[in-house]
């Protein structure tokens, strides 16, 4: 008797599990299916009624328009994101190493000063940073964007990497020094290669923050300057009512969404580890 009831509840549980699982997947895959479908529809097809997935007259017009529109903004995005990555790596990798493996006076206080800046709402800095950038002539420059984004990229990177460096075996550098390495070469030749996967993952994250970032990019660039694609997309969606060609917009979203998605899937295991606090 009891045996049977347990079994019935097991079946019910499994059924519920799969229903929820597919339900959740649906909230992601159905929108995605529409986005892809719509990006292959010609402009006329948006005025026909009814909901359907397969385009009636598939066309590449939306993609052509989207790519033509995106050439310049994508160059800017690429330049901003890769520069941001390089600058942040130069600072954050040695920084995280020092925080993770060295002792020095004031370490805790400096670390917490960094740590708090990871948490506090960066948006409140748009006013002072815009103002300072105007004064030191960094407004509307690529370098200005690189530097501004460091404000939140670096604390994030140091937070993740420090944790990783800290968990490496304690006597790694000592062993290297026995074989004739200096402190510096021990870092470059021994520690860094071991930490490479994590460093690469963090570089991906820096790149995608640079790619996705909207607010600072919008405040610090103008139409004549290095305005990245995200801001252009934002502007396209503003003041749109009725007669917008959604096909083109959806093609643009697919182009802009792909690079960060690919990078994220590579970087995710390290992100999980860094925040894995039990």
């Amino acid at each position: 008797m009891t045996h049977n009831t347990v079994k019935a509840s097991d079946y019910a549980f499994t059924l519920l599990r799969y229903l929820t699982l597919f339900g959740l997947l649906g909230t992601i895959l159905i929108p995605l299916a529409f986005v892809i479908s719509v990006s292959f529809r010609p402009p006329e097809e948006f005025f026909t009624s009814g909901v359907y997935l397969i385009p009636k007259n598939p066309s590449l017009e939306a993609w052509e328009q989207a790519l033509r529109f995106l050439v310049e903004p994508l160059k800017n995005s690429l330049l901003i994101a890769s520069g941001t990555t390089i600058v942040s790596m130069l600072i954050a990798v040695p920084g995280a190493y020092v925080f993770g493996r060295k002792e020095f006076p004031g370490k805790d206080i400096i670390y917490y000063a960094l740590f708090v800046s990871l948490l506090f709402p960066h948006i409140l800095l748009i006013a002072p940073i815009t103002d300072i950038w105007f004064e030191i002539k960094l407004y509307n420059t690529v370098i200005g964007m690189w530097l501004a984004l460091q404000v939140f990229v670096i604390p994030f990177m140091i937070y993740i990497l420090r944790d990783y460096f800290e968990k490496l075996p304690q006597n790694l550098e000592e062993a290297a020094q026995i074989y004739g390495c200096t402190e510096f070469t021990a870092f470059v030749r021994v520690v860094l290669p071991i930490a490479m996967p994590a460093v690469v993952a963090v570089a991906f994250l820096a790149f995608l923050i640079g790619w996705n970032e909207f607010l600072f990019a919008n405040m610090l660039t103008s139409g004549q300057g290095p305005r990245p694609a995200i801001v252009e997309l934002f502007l396209l969606t503003q003041g749109t009512s009725g007669n917008v060609y959604w096909g083109r917009l959806m093609a643009i979203t697919l182009v802009l969404g792909t690079p960060p998605t690919v990078l994220y899937l590579f970087a995710r295991s390290y992100l999980g580890q860094a925040f894995n606090i039990t």
Partner: peptide
């Protein structure tokens, strides 16, 4: 989460 928020915003504006 991997899509830029402005991109997912655009998607929902359409949907």
């Amino acid at each position: 989460y991997t899509l830029p928020p402005v991109v997912s915003g655009t998607v929902w504006l359409y949907l």
